[in-house]
C-alpha cells in the first residue's frame, strides 16, 4: 500500500494524543499523586488536543475531495471510518468540558466533570479502536486484517501517550513520577513485543496467490499484460513496493528508534531526555506506520502479476 504521509501523521499524532489523554484521565481520576495538579493536567490536555486536532486536520489532506469531508459522519451504521469520525468529534465537548472543569476547579472535580473525564477517556479509546478497525476490517489486506492491528494501534497509541505524559509531568512538575516512568517503560516493552509478534505473523506465507485470483488453480499463472502501459490509480495505490533488504533495515531502525532508544533514555531522570524520548518515539512510530503501509500487500496486486500477497 502506498503510504500517504498525511495518514501516517494522523494516526501517529492522534494515537499519541488519545493515549495521552486516556492515561492522564485515568491517572488523574484514580488519584495518582503526581497528576493531581491543575497546570499539569491542563498542559497534558491541551497537548493531547493539539495532537489530535493536528492529526485530524492532516487526515483530511489525503482526501481528494475534502469539501465532502463533513459527510464522513453519515455512515455510522457500517463504516469504521465514519465511526471514528463521529467518536473523534464527540470526544471534543467532553474533553473540553473536563478541561474547563480543571481550569476552573483544579484537580478536584465534581461528579459532572469526572463523568466528562471518564467519557472522554472512553471516547479516546474507542476512537483509537475505530481507527484501527478501518484497517483491520479490510479482508483485502491480510497484513491488516487481523487482531494484531487493533492491538498495535491501541498499545502504540497508549505507549506514545505514556511517554508524552511522562515528559509533560516531569517538565511541569520538575520531578519524575516513577509510576509514570515505569509504566512508560513497560508499555515500550509491550509495544516492541507486539510489533515483533506482528512481523513474525505477517512473515508467514499465508496470503492469497495469483491462482485462485485468476481462477486457474492447476498451473502457474503469469501476468503478460496489465492492459495499460503506464501505471494507473491501482498501481500507484496498491503496487507500492520496497526492496526486501531495505524493508529489513527500516524495520530494525524503526524498532531502535521507536522502542529501544526511548527505553534507554527513560533510564535517566532527566525531563529533557524524557521529552526527547517521546519525540523520538513519535518519529519511530511514523516509520512504524510507514512500514504498516509499505508492507501491506493488497490482493489487487495479484491481478497485476504478484504471485502472492
Amino acid at each position: 500500500m502506498h503510504p500517504a504521509f498525511s495518514v501516517l501523521v494522523f494516526t501517529v499524532l492522534s494515537g499519541a494524543g488519545y493515549g495521552l489523554i486516556l492515561l492522564m484521565v485515568i491517572g488523574h481520576l484514580l488519584g495518582l499523586g503526581e497528576l493531581q495538579d491543575r497546570n499539569l493536567l491542563l498542559s497534558g490536555g491541551v497537548l493531547s488536543l493539539v495532537l489530535i486536532s493536528t492529526g485530524l486536520l492532516a487526515s483530511t489532506l489525503h482526501l481528494a475531495n475534502p469539501k465532502n469531508a463533513w459527510r464522513a459522519f453519515s455512515r455510522f451504521k457500517t463504516s469504521w471510518l465514519s465511526r471514528e469520525a463521529v467518536f473523534a468529534i464527540l470526544f471534543y465537548p467532553f474533553v473540553i468540558f473536563y478541561l474547563t472543569g480543571i481550569w476552573s476547579m483544579g484537580a478536584q472535580l465534581n461528579a459532572i466533570f469526572v463523568a466528562a473525564g471518564i467519557i472522554s477517556a472512553v471516547l479516546a479509546l474507542v476512537t483509537l479502536f475505530c481507527t484501527s478497525m478501518i484497517y483491520a476490517s479490510l479482508k483485502t489486506i491480510r497484513q491488516w486484517n487481523n487482531a494484531l492491528t487493533p492491538v498495535t494501534y491501541l498499545v502504540l497509541g497508549i505507549m506514545s501517550g505514556s511517554l508524552l505524559l511522562l515528559a509533560v509531568q516531569s517538565i511541569v512538575a520538575g520531578t519524575v513520577s516513577s509510576q509514570l516512568q515505569q509504566s512508560a517503560m513497560a508499555l515500550l516493552v509491550l509495544g516492541v513485543a507486539v510489533k515483533i509478534i506482528y512481523f513474525f505473523w505477517i512473515g508467514k506465507p499465508s496470503g492469497s496467490t495469483i491462482k485462485p485470483a485468476t481462477g486457474f488453480t492447476q498451473a502457474s499463472v503469469r501476468l503478460l499484460d496489465q492492459g495499460h502501459s503506464s501505471n494507473g490509480f491501482l498501481n500507484n495505490e496498491f503496487g507500492y513496493t520496497v526492496a526486501a533488504n531495505k524493508l529489513l533495515r527500516i524495520r530494525l531502525l524503526m524498532l531502535a528508534v521507536a522502542f529501544v532508544l526511548p527505553l534507554l533514555l527513560l533510564l535517566s531522570h532527566n525531563s529533557l531526555l524524557f521529552l526527547i524520548a517521546a519525540l523520538i518515539t513519535l518519529a519511530g512510530l511514523l516509520a512504524e506506520r510507514w512500514l504498516f503501509f509499505a508492507e501491506a500487500r493488497h490482493v489487487v496486486r495479484l491481478f497485476h502479476g504478484d504471485q502472492r500477497v
Binding site: L63, A64, N68, S79, F233, L234, E237, V300
Partner: peptide, 27 residues
C-alpha cells in the same frame, strides 16, 4: 458523486480493482 470525499477506502476494500479515483474530480 455528490457525496464522495475521495478517501479511497472503498478502493482499499475492493479485491477486484474495480474502483479508480478520478484524477480531476477527486471522486
Amino acid at each position: 458523486q455528490d457525496k464522495c470525499m475521495g478517501c479511497n477506502l472503498c478502493a482499499w476494500a475492493c479485491p477486484y480493482g474495480a474502483r479508480e479515483l478520478d484524477p480531476a474530480q477527486g471522486t
